[in-house]
């Protein structure tokens, strides 16, 4: 008899628990929906990929088929088929507007001191002219960083992008030590707007939400590329610095003017080069030299004596 009683009690509790779960599900669905932040009355507050909050009427929303975390991670590991993304940075156009950095930090939930994209002030030798140089992850074809990862968290995709899975990353920072371009950042503190992104499902292709104690890096805005859009830094530039495209198609498009040109011709005509090519890392980011600049250098070079 005692035995039966316990079983009955168990079933009863289980039933109640299941019922509660059932009640809780709709709430959970709203809570776990990608980028849904707050729901009250007839409107709902959403977070756009650009990091802005918008209010939308509930009746206008359609349920989207969002990939679950595992699907997202799996999908993110396979590159977009038949693509080989390349970026060309025209140093003769960069005048330190820093719009690329702002757009990048908004997109990838980065603190002000964290940079996937950073505009550096460069002077190669004592008597040479200083210039501005935007620098991001070079997305090397022979990446030193992915080879040292002990947990397979960072990897190179078939479309050329080097990504990091923050769910796998253990924060050992071997990759930071391996990267010759200092392209990776570590989340030493709680990321920017941590509270705002708390219920957002992790997107491996945007590194959002960021996780404290893990690495983050430039990912060519892989989530935007999947949607057929240019990376956020490329379209944010007001000065036509960035060209982005598919090397297989031999075409790159300027983010500012939307002009499309041949990738090989652009490099050939302007003597394009890659950073630290002597290391054999084979970067996918190319630079055009800072010649014929139509504006003055306004920064202040630091003297390291």
């Amino acid at each position: 008899m005692d035995n039966q009683n316990t079983r009955r009690n168990f079933l009863k509790t289980a039933g109640i628990a299941l019922g509660c779960l059932g009640l809780a599900v709709p709430e959970r669905v709203i809570g776990s929906g990608n980028k849904v932040l707050d729901a009250e009355g007839d409107t709902i507050t959403l977070l756009t990929p650009g990091g802005q909050l918008v209010k939308v009427e509930k009746s206008k929303l359609k349920p989207a088929e969002l990939p679950s975390l595992t699907e997202n991670q799996k999908r993110g590991r396979e590159g977009l088929p038949i693509r080989a993304w390349v970026m060309v940075i025209d140093l003769s156009k960069c005048r330190n507007a820093r719009k690329c950095m702002a757009a990048c930090q908004a997109h990838h939930q980065l603190r002000p001191e964290q940079h996937h994209m950073n505009t550096l002030q460069m002077q190669d030798a004592e008597h040479t002219a200083p210039y501005y140089m935007p620098k991001n992850c070079q997305h090397c074809d022979n990446p030193p960083c992915t080879k040292v990862c002990p947990v397979n968290a960072t990897f190179k995709r078939s479309d050329g992008i080097v990504l990091i899975d923050n769910e796998r990353c253990i924060g050992c920072r071997f990759c930071i030590a391996a990267c010759p371009y200092s392209a990776r950042v570590f989340n030493w503190f709680e990321p920017r707007d941590a509270e705002k992104y708390k219920d957002v499902v992790y997107d491996i292709e945007a590194n959002v939400p960021q996780k404290k104690g893990t690495i983050s890096k430039c990912l060519f805005s892989a989530d935007l590329l999947r949607a057929g859009k240019l990376p956020s830094c490329v379209s944010a530039c007001p000065n036509g610095v960035y060209w982005f495209g598919d090397q297989n198609e031999d075409a790159v498009t300027n983010g500012t003017t939307k002009e499309t040109t041949r990738f090989s011709k652009l490099l050939k005509d302007n003597a394009g080069y890659t950073l630290m090519e002597e290391l054999g890392t084979k970067p996918r980011v190319y630079y055009l030299p800072p010649k014929n600049r139509a504006f003055p250098f306004e920064g202040e070079m630091q003297k390291h004596e």
Partner: peptide, 19 residues
């Protein structure tokens, strides 16, 4: 057509066993 995609090859020295 581009038949050989060197990017698709896993390029790792030492990592988890399957890689």
């Amino acid at each position: 057509p581009v038949t050989d995609n060197p990017l698709a090859r896993g390029n790792v020295l030492w990592s988890t066993n399957d890689r």
